[in-house]
Structures are given as structure tokens and as C-alpha cells.
Design a protein around this nucleic acid. Structure first.
Length: 489
RNA sequence: GGUCACGUGGCCGAGUGGUUAGGCAGUGGUCUGCAACACCAUCUACGGCGGUUCGAAUCCGUCCGUGACCUCCA
């Protein structure tokens, strides 16, 4: 196994990846709250953690990838007056809360599938782990890091902070937090502004509630991730991922809860993806400046000049390092689309390449660079840049401006496949994949033959007619020295 | 206000103490009956000002600008 380095948010350093129980790797990623369609921002963690997971698998690890579905408990608005997001949506649409959950979970799955993100090994939902959440609260209470008030249970942050460092992940100090935290509204049950709810007593009109030792209520915002990661990956596991916006308070609270309950540090490597921006500003639900994935796939949004395929989106996202912000624009997306086409083009040319006696170029060093890039904190943009270098060689070889030995050609074919499909998870456009499966190709060969005859007879009217009509049918003819090929556009 | 990032050529986006990132767009060529595709060549660069150094876009300081988190957010 090669050495893989991962930037750990906890230490702010790139660290050599050493799994706790090699070859097993436990990976937990925060999934969506299912109360609305997934947008471009959701695609990013979906894709970048998919590539991490794929690369770890490729590298020989046996990965258990857990990604939750949040279907309960996130409050809207400020303080206690807030409403459960899913409940709010349910009331709005006159649905059962679980209907909302089911609907958006399905749509999320469809989107992730379109983006060719592999499904998680386990996809637990919060509502299915109420018992476990109650058990964890009991543990935290026993440890003395929580207190009950009027049927609700809160995590005692100042007390926790006397034994541990609350704020170490996000680089905060509790004293600073105290100064900056918004002042509490009157009647708050919390003893300290930084305390957070583990269990909330449900108001009468609250639709989603469960029995507990403290009250009929529902679990707090951050608890599900601690509970479900512990249940499926253990009290101490390898990788926890999520968006940077979850760093504080969500992930900070997760650490506090887990340490509070078990005394053990839950996560070895914390990994955070950066945000997608639009006009330099974060794309987010609360800002209302988001574009849903369906809108992108269909080109159905006022900011979009055209539709962009899921693979264009995937390629676009992999073109930037996960830790950098990535700015959305039609121009950038179009560049990604064209770039991806170039890569696909290179791939299909590669399939028909003939081997020479010797190689005039070196393949292995470039492939090594691809893997070295991925080993360096999953640097997909550099990996892709090297791939373009290979495309140049492939194109040159097809024009006899470069030669590849049989061994090199085999090496290139195999690894181009591995990197493009297995690791980066890109897919060829459906049409070109199905091309050989039908008799379409035979028909096309006939048409190409007829056009060739016309050209030889200098009957350019006929040859251009064929070309133009095919073009209208979204079929592009590609003339080269060795004859004509075709592809769907 | 606190904490933390970032500022790269027309656009997107890597990288980093001395060597071409890459893609898209542009320009010139090759190919073509004309094109498209493809290929070759080529042009725009590291926010301002200081400092360290033989040498900085890369390190340090400072100023300016932008953003994120501090409230649910991927």
C-alpha cells in the first residue's frame, strides 16, 4: 500500500493515513436533512467523499461508508420558538412528516445515483435510532456532563470544558464563545449559552415525538451523528467527513457528546469539504441562492444558460481541490463540459490505438504522478491535469506523432480505466457506451461508406447533405486520415 | 466584534523558495473539397508596500479587498 496523506481538521496538518484496524476503514459522512431537493452544494460532499471512499477501496482497504439521513430534529429559526424543518414542510404541504422524509430521500438517492456516487454501506436515519439516542443521553447524564430541566436534557458545556477542550476542532475557546454567543432570550432553560439540547420536550402541536425517561419529546440536533457513528463504526473510528459549515457547532458537539458518553475521542481524521460559491457567496438554502441538481440537469433555472449533465457536474467538482471554495458560473461549467468531452474523446481514441515496437514517450512516470496526486490529500485537480497529459500522448500516438509499445499501451489502457472510472467515478456518456450494442453502428458504417463514395466522385452536394442531416440528428462525423468515425453529440 | 481562510493570466482552477500545472476562451498554423473533430505552436499571472534570501508568486511583516463560521445550512 502506498502512503496516503490526509489533511486533518483537528490538527490542521496533512497526516499519514494509518487506519485503526487495517485493512478495515470506518468512514462517516454527514448526509442531508431531507426537507428539500438537493442542490449543487450537496453534490460536493457527495462526490468528494465518494472519491475518497473509492480511492481507499482501490488502495486495498475494506471501507465501511456510513452516511446518515437526518429526518428529525433540526429546528428552524432562533431558539426555542423554532420549528422542526421537516414538520414545517409537512404542515405546509399537508403531509405526514414521514411522507416528506420518504419523498426527499428518494429524490436525494436519484440525484446521487445520477452523479454516480456509490450508495453508502449503511444509511441510517435519526428516527430509526431513538432508543440508541436515549441510551447515549443516559450515559452522558451518568458521566455528569448533562442536566435535565422540565423534561429536556442539555449538554453541560462549561463542565465538559473543565476536563476537555470544547472548541478544539473549530479552534475556539469557551471564553470567546461566551462573549460572542447571542444573549439568551428570557425563560431559556439552558444554564449556559453554549449548552446544547440532547433531548427536547415536545410542545403539544409538535408532530414528531417519542417517549423517553424525561418527557415525550425528540432528540437534539447533534446527537444522531454521535449515536449512529458509534453504533456502526465504534467509539473510535477513522474518518469523519462533512461540509465546513458543519464544523461548528455540529461536529464540535459531536466530539463533546462522544467523549462525554464514552470518554473516548471518536474520530481520528476529520475531513471537511469547502463550499460552492455563486458570485463569491456561499450557495445555501438559507441564502436562497441555490440551484438544485434537477434544475442543473434540466437547465431549468434563470441563472443557467443550458443544461449540464451529471458527469459535467462531477467533473466540475473534481476540477477543484475539495478544501477550496469553488465558484459556480455558466462559463466554468461549460469549460468543465468541454474538458470532460476532451477526456472522453481521448479515452475512445485510446481504445483503437495500435501498438508499436517501442515507446517514444514515457507512460509510467505520468501514471505515477496521477496516483501521487491522489495520495496527497486526494488532489483530484492535479490527477486530472496529468490525465490530460496522457490524452495529448494518446492523440499524438493516433497521428503517429508518438509511439507506444504493447506493454505501455496495456499499462495506459488499464490505468486510464482505473483512474477515470473506478477512482474518479466518471462515466462515459450513455450513448457512446451503447453504441456498439445495437446495429446502429453497422448502419452508420453503411452511411459513411456512401458518403465516401460521393466524395470520391466529387459529389460534394451529396456528401455534405449526409453530414448536415446527420448533424441535425445529433450525430457528428469525424474525418481523419484513417477514415471516418462518428459519435453522438 | 471574535476565530479562520483566501486574493494567481479573459474565465475556472492547481502549485509553491530557483524548472510548462491543467481545462475553457483567444491567436497563428497543420489536416480537410469546404468544414467539424483532432493535433502543433503561441499570448495574457501570481492584490499593494516593505523585509528575509544569491534568488519569492511561494517565507515574514503590514496595508487593502473578499469570504466562511460564531444561528439551521453540504
Amino acid at each position: 500500500m502506498r502512503d496516503l496523506y490526509i489533511k486533518n481538521t483537528l490538527t490542521r496538518k496533512k497526516e499519514l493515513f494509518k487506519p485503526l484496524n487495517a485493512p478495515l476503514v470506518g468512514m462517516y459522512v454527514c448526509g442531508p436533512t431531507v426537507y428539500g431537493d438537493a442542490h449543487l452544494g450537496h453534490a460536493r460532499p457527495g462526490i468528494v467523499f465518494d472519491v475518497m471512499r473509492r480511492y481507499l477501496s482501490y488502495s486495498g482497504y475494506k471501507v465501511r461508508f456510513v452516511r446518515n439521513i437526518t429526518d428529525v430534529g433540526h429546528l428552524v429559526g432562533d431558539g426555542d420558538q423554532g420549528e422542526d424543518k421537516i414538520q414545517k414542510k409537512a404542515k405546509l404541504e399537508k403531509l405526514e412528516p414521514m411522507e416528506v422524509v420518504q419523498h426527499y430521500t428518494l429524490r436525494y438517492h436519484q440525484n446521487m445515483d445520477a452523479l454516480n456516487c456509490l450508495p453508502p454501506s449503511i444509511e441510517p436515519c435519526a428516527s430509526g435510532h431513538i432508543t440508541e439516542q436515549i441510551q447515549m443521553i443516559e450515559k452522558i447524564l451518568q458521566a455528569g456532563y448533562a442536566y435535565e430541566v422540565n423534561g429536556s436534557v442539555y449538554f453541560d458545556v462549561p463542565k465538559y470544558n473543565t476536563h476537555h477542550h470544547y472548541g478544539k476542532l473549530s479552534g475556539r475557546k469557551i471564553e470567546d464563545l461566551l462573549e460572542q454567543t447571542r444573549s439568551l432570550e428570557g425563560g431559556d432553560e439552558k444554564r449556559h449559552p453554549t449548552d446544547f439540547a440532547l433531548w427536547k420536550k415536545a410542545a403539544k402541536e409538535h408532530l414528531m415525538h417519542w417517549p423517553s425517561p424525561w418527557s415525550e419529546g425528540f432528540p437534539g440536533w447533534h446527537l444522531e451523528c454521535s449515536v449512529m457513528s458509534t453504533k456502526y463504526l465504534g467509539e473510535h473510528f477513522d474518518i469523519h467527513g462533512g461540509g465546513m459549515d458543519l464544523l461548528f457547532p455540529h461536529h464540535e458537539c459531536e466530539i463533546a457528546q462522544s467523549v462525554g458518553a464514552s470518554g473516548k475521542e471518536p474520530v481520528k481524521y476529520w475531513v471537511h469539504n469547502n463550499m460552492i460559491t455563486i458570485n463569491g457567496q456561499k450557495m445555501g438554502k438559507s441564502l436562497g441562492n441555490f440551484i438544485t441538481l434537477d434544475e442543473l440537469f434540466e437547465g431549468n433555472h434563470k441563472l443557467l444558460e443550458q443544461a449540464y449533465s451529471p458527469m459535467t457536474i462531477r467533473f466540475f467538482i473534481l476540477g477543484a481541490h475539495y478544501s477550496s471554495t469553488l465558484d459556480f458560473s455558466n462559463e466554468a461549467l461549460l469549460a468543465a463540459q468541454k474538458g470532460f468531452e476532451r477526456l472522453v474523446n481521448g479515452y475512445s481514441v485510446l481504445q483503437n490505438l495500435k501498438a508499436s515496437e517501442n515507446s517514444s514517450v514515457e507512460i509510467k512516470p505520468i501514471l505515477d504522478k496521477c496516483f501521487a496526486a491522489l495520495d496527497d490529500d486526494f488532489n483530484t485537480p492535479i490527477c486530472i491535469a496529468e490525465l490530460f497529459g496522457l490524452v495529448k500522448i494518446i492523440q499524438n500516438a493516433s497521428r503517429n506523432n508518438a509511439q507506444l509499445s504493447l506493454a505501455d499501451l496495456k499499462l495506459l489502457k488499464h490505468n486510464f480505466d482505473v483512474i477515470l472510472f473506478e477512482i474518479l467515478g466518471l462515466e462515459l456518456p450513455k450513448d457512446s457506451k451503447d453504441k456498439s450494442a445495437s446495429n446502429q453502428d453497422d448502419l452508420m458504417q453503411l452511411i459513411i461508406e456512401l458518403r465516401k463514395n460521393a466524395k470520391e466522385n466529387k459529389d460534394y452536394a451529396t456528401s455534405d447533405l449526409i453530414r448536415d442531416k446527420l448533424s441535425e440528428l445529433s450525430i457528428q462525423l469525424k474525418d481523419s486520415r484513417d477514415g471516418t468515425t462518428w459519435e453522438k453529440t
